[in-house]
Design a binder for these strands. Structure first.
Lengths: 351, 351
DNA sequence: TTGTAGGCGTTATCAG
DNA sequence: CTGATAACGCCTACAA
């Protein structure tokens, strides 16, 4: 049973294809009689007419498709953003294609090609591209927005997550709480990402500003397993080591997953408590951080708003307009997993 | 700058469009000279020729698009399946459109329509549809596969998660461990789903088979917040109540998220320990279950294999062939969160 | 082995 | 206000 075409509708309604098109699209600057309109609508309904998007695309070269690039779904951060994007685009009449790269440049490139082939109306990157050259090239054809870390030398619209500021915020907060020996926990995948590097820089900067020595921060990187859960594993295993030491009083996970792993570890130890003995915090504000007890202190970027903004930018972009660079103002979300350093009176020195 | 078309390539290569088409598609039963082939390939390369999928679709009515329906991304179970599906389809040259319904029938219907409009080559449902009539209708046009609970009266290809068996497995396991008073924890969204009902039936059946009274199982439902994290919240808050009682020795979450919430609660209590005082387990085998300490006992359905199977079914389906019904054979994954009932010698009675 | 020609279902430009 | 008619870019008999 073949699908009804606009021609069929026209025939049934006793009008021309053109008229059908006008009615279906509510074409402006065309006024048709109520009668014709109704006739067409009825016919369309009766035949269950659904416009063929191929034909339409051929004419309009609009696909109503958006490509969303992400490295993995294993970190809930990405599905969360994905969902925000989907929720918003659906309202605008666009659909979303999942472009999961697994941090594999080949896959990334393949999806980039796909974007052209399918004439996607826009591309949103939730991480820093690996094929920068190709992405920039693509951006001449299709609007691209990066929702990740900003790199000044990239000529692409980007909404920066402002990793530096995130790191600074967290570190300043811990420093104000009296912590003098802080650990930064990275999984090995972390090293890849610009965002994560920036977070580290931010932390270091806060320490410097506080007049403390660089040794205040110690960085630990766990070897990587193969699967995504290894981020939490990483946090757990590094924390196991750290528990043997007396000096560390605060732990910053490179993201919430790592922080979660670290927290699990401490929760399982007999002698240490969070936050009385160790403070733990992360970045991203994924839902996990509110599901644990204690709930995890973290940094949020108003992700939903940023996602909507990214969509707006991508859809509004008119050809090669000026490159837009925005930075989110991250917010520290203090919850239960952080507190004054042990042996401190605990006054919060912040302004 | 307009995209190159096959006509451009033909002109540059000094051949006809037809030849270009032949070369690009490696059309069988056509042998062209190495020379022409190379000429065309070079020209295509030089012009960065990418076939226009609209035009191609218009002829072939294939979109190389798959619609994946899921209720939410908040439960990691769904992103996990989504990722499995994406990983596999990408290899087969298909892309995936995220159809997130938020359990809202209107959205679901809208996406169903979209599937027709975009001529998707297949649709995979990761939950039980709400517009069964519409889905069945759609299935006459587009292959549909359900990866969820089987309902005998639904004329759709389905891979059943076999919720009944899942419930049975878990219950039998706990019963064998000597538990005589078991709680089943549901969030209020759970009540919607067929899968979850089946799990409950399976549990009850196991109890019956063990010759124990129905009161062995007590069912608790938490009121629903608005967001997805409330599944874990539900587990947590119900567990808070249960901790005040002495009778319950084992808790089954309607899914891993609920189980996780329950676990968090117990972990935070002073007097109870998992699994010594309470056993906790769930369903789905999401990555969270291995991230906690103790790791959570759960049921797995070999989801990756099932996802690939679903994709195969959807792509191989030739028109209205016979409806295929498969059932997964779920596997109990015993981890650290379950153990013998308190006061039991703890022998495992299982064969 | 290669080229010609027609059509897929829309939209858009013109006349009427 | 409505109706022919011509593309859009590709595929595919069929012809050469």
């Amino acid at each position: 049973m073949k699908r009804a075409t606009s021609k069929d509708v026209a025939k049934l309604a006793g009008v021309s294809q053109t008229t059908v098109s006008f009615v279906m699209n509510n074409t402006p600057n065309v006024s048709l009689s109520e009668e014709t309109r109704k006739k067409v609508l009825d016919a369309a309904n009766q035949l269950q007419y659904i416009p063929n998007s191929f034909a339409r695309g051929l004419k309009t070269s609009q696909s109503k498709l958006l490509g969303v690039f992400l490295p993995t779904m294993d970190n809930p951060y990405y599905p969360m953003l994905m969902q925000y994007i989907e929720k918003y685009t659906a309202r605008l009449g666009y659909s979303v294609i999942l472009c999961c790269t697994y941090r594999n440049p080949e896959r990334e490139k393949a999806y980039l090609d796909l974007c052209e082939e399918k004439h996607m109306d826009g591309v949103i990157y939730l991480f820093t591209p690996n094929w920068m050259k190709r992405v920039v090239q693509l951006s001449h054809t299709i609007p691209v927005v990066l929702l990740s870390e900003k790199s000044d030398d990239i000529p692409l619209n980007t909404i920066s997550l402002n990793g530096f500021r995130c790191g600074y915020l967290v570190a300043k907060y811990l420093l104000d709480l009296g912590h003098k020996s802080i650990a930064f926990l990275m999984s090995s995948v972390s090293s890849v990402s610009l965002t994560r590097t920036k977070r580290l820089e931010g932390i270091r900067s806060a320490i410097r500003d506080a007049g403390l020595p660089p040794e205040t921060l110690q960085v630990f990187t766990a070897p990587l397993g193969d699967s995504g859960q290894s981020e939490a594993e990483a946090g757990y295993s590094i924390m196991e080591q750290l528990l043997k030491r007396k000096d560390i009083t605060a732990v910053i996970g490179v993201n919430d997953l790592v922080a979660f792993g670290a927290l699990s570890c401490v929760l399982n130890s007999e002698d240490k408590r969070v936050p009385q003995d160790v403070s733990i915090c992360g970045f991203d504000n994924i839902y996990l951080t509110t599901m644990t007890r204690p709930k995890i202190t973290t940094v949020s970027y108003c992700t939903e708003a940023l996602c909507e903004l990214a969509v707006d930018m991508v859809l509004k972009a008119t050809g090669d307009s000026d490159v837009l660079k925005l930075a989110s103002e991250p917010q520290l979300i203090v919850r239960e997993s952080t507190g004054p350093a042990p042996g401190t009176s605990g006054q919060c020195v912040s302004s």
